[in-house]
Amino acid sequence: MKTGNRQARLWAFLLALAIILSFSGPTLAVDDGARAYWKGRSGTQGVSFQYLHFNVNASDSQQFDPGAYIYPNSDADANIFIATWAPHFTLFNRPSFLAVNIAGGSVDADVNTNLIPPQYLPPGVSPGSSFSQSASGFADPNAQLVVNLFGTPPLRSGVDLLNYEPTWTLDAAGLLAFPIGQYNSDKLVNMGQNRWYGRIALPFKYHFGVFDPGHMTSLEVTPSVWLFADNGNFLGEKLKNDPMWQLEAHLTHDFTSSFFGSLDLLYRRGFQSEINGTDVGEGLNIGNLGFTLNYQAVDNLAIRAGFSSNVFGDSDLDNSIIRIQFVYAWHPSTENMKKLKSGH
């Protein structure tokens, strides 16, 4: 009997699941990503590194990112990296994971001050002029805890994984960002937000067909709300923001056992800004569509690339996002089995 082959297939299967780790989008301008809320076996850990390039052009609007007040007639380019560590575990007998995100990078903005009230101009900038600003360094780190509420049993062992054939699942997720990122109150452009903020989400997904590598299809919908504390020193003023409502959705499909694609949707609404009690600009209403391709290069490593751009909502806030991501995941059992097989 070819027990060895069966073992190999078993571990390949376990890895395929383990590697589908969850990474919460650490910067507020991007989504969590396709298959972000799939659960791995307890004890699985993953690290991810992703590079994002944003390009934003605001013709008449005021804001794009909840952390960045975007002036009208401005352009911004950002190169962001996000490093994530995500351990999977069982919490209250429910499959869960924590995603700790550290982001950083640089942002360059060109701003025309024609439409800006003089009191909101940075020191030394004359009304009617144009100016450029840059920021670089770490953004506010955040951590998100995700706990399954329904549809996924605790995945403590290989047996649990083998028996796992989900149909629909519902999670609860809470994210908290820590205001320790780079912030200069004299500058319009910063990496950090100088305030506490967080998110509550209810990730839901439905699995179609067979839950087996190469055959998996899922619809994932994550409604969430972002909540913000005040920034008491926004150019010396007090910045408040309404909650931002967000709907993220992905339709994912396996093309092969090591390659899947996803159609992505990210819609945001709300987030009306108020400075010293006065509304500034209008609330956000923007929807991005995009796609993601994910390739499982080897047992532990997946490479993901994606693109999205606004296609509905406010047409005067053009943006595009390019993402490249590397995900490395492991489980002690898998690694130990490799050691045994290789004779170490």
Binding site: M1, T3, R6, L10, S157, G158, V159, L162
Partner: peptide, 17 residues
């Protein structure tokens, strides 16, 4: 004689078989 004792197989492998 060429079939392993199933009680000596890992629970995961038993599930697969």
């Amino acid at each position: 004689w060429f079939v392993p004792r199933s009680t000596a197989l890992t629970p995961a492998l038993r599930v697969m078989l």
